[in-house]
């Protein structure tokens, strides 16, 4: 059994953790399923703006129908798949602490409510595709994080690395909180500006900014790097303390790279979104890309001088 299997949980997992993993996988899969459907249903809506649509009434009818289908698919995504976001945001709000769930929840609400109203009235833009993409991509990042965390739980616990983890995680959390607060203020300001300048685009700009403000990639930077370090220790249990120290320094370097890299990426996208150049769905994709880049950076730490290049991992063959 590999230390990291994305779909089958580790065998020694406690019941509660196993249930959490199953729920997370179900939420992730259903969100992706609904997302694919809703993205297809969104297509006629994008056609409507183009001048070449010669049969406008038929197109309007199709858009109307497909908006209702999208709404039917988006409601379960918002209520069931995004449940961890709601519970997290409510818990945070009670403790008056700004986590990453608050901007995510605001982003979902800001996109979903106007879309549902537009569907009901049959006029205006809908953002169901952005909502489902946002939820699906966010859950993908969180699922990877959960897998990484649960993989750490198995095997002898590696205290030496834990010490580094605490320091790194505390710093990453405080950076992410400041970052999120600044982004929220920016989103509000940009929303007010666009509402005065061009009200029809205000919702799109605010949704894109709220999507970008989600620090999911930043939240992934420390757990994935630490998980990669633990996986390396698991692979080579005979490491001495000096080697583990070197590994911990490498881990800290990689997680810092990921943290500042994803922050720079967000800061680069923010002005573009404020100018209205980034559609909400594009913002969701850039968010997924930065999360994947963080995951890949940590994976590099695990790969480096650990596996011979071009060779299968030994335990995949031996079933260790």
């Amino acid at each position: 059994m590999r230390a990291f299997s994305l779909f089958s949980p580790p065998k020694v997992l406690a019941d509660g953790e196993r249930k959490k993993r199953r729920h997370m996988l179900a939420r992730l899969g259903l969100a992706w399923l609904a997302m694919m459907q809703v993205m297809m249903f969104a297509f006629p809506g994008y056609l409507r703006g183009s001048p070449s649509s010669d049969d406008a009434s038929l197109l309007d009818q199709a858009v109307f129908l497909m908006n209702w289908c999208s709404l039917a698919l988006t409601v379960p995504v918002v209520l069931y798949c995004a449940w961890p976001v709601w519970s997290g945001a409510l818990g945070r709000a009670q403790r008056a602490h700004l986590g990453m769930d608050v901007p995510v929840a605001l982003g979902i609400v800001a996109a979903f409510i106007p879309s549902a109203m537009a569907t009901w009235s049959g006029r205006g833009e809908v953002y169901f595709d952005s909502v489902t993409m946002f939820v699906a991509f966010l859950l993908t990042a969180r699922y990877f994080e959960l897998c990484a965390r649960q993989a750490i739980g198995i095997g002898g616990l590696h205290r030496h690395l834990e010490r580094y983890r605490r320091a790194l995680a505390a710093r990453a959390d405080s950076i992410a909180a400041w970052f999120t607060a600044a982004q929220l203020l920016l989103a509000l300001g940009a929303g007010a500006f666009w509402h005065a300048a061009d009200p029809s685009r205000a919702v799109g700009v605010v949704v894109a900014l709220l999507v970008i403000s989600c620090p999911c990639a930043m939240a992934m930077s420390v757990p994935t790097a630490i998980a990669a370090a633990h996986a390396r220790v698991l692979r080579r249990p005979d490491m001495d303390v000096a080697e583990v120290d070197a590994l911990a320094r490498a881990t800290s370097r990689v997680s810092r790279q990921s943290l500042y890299g994803s922050m720079a990426w967000h800061l680069l996208m923010t002005p573009l979104a404020m100018l209205g150049w980034v559609q909400p769905w594009l913002a969701a994709i850039t968010m997924l890309l930065s999360s994947l880049a963080v995951g890949a950076n940590s994976w590099r730490l695990y790969r480096r001088d650990c596996l011979p290049a071009g060779d299968w991992p030994a335990d995949a063959i031996q079933g260790a």
Partner: peptide, 10 residues
């Protein structure tokens, strides 16, 4: 998922 189909793929 909840019938455990993905629990042990090995």
């Amino acid at each position: 998922i909840f019938a455990g189909q993905f629990d042990d793929t090995d």
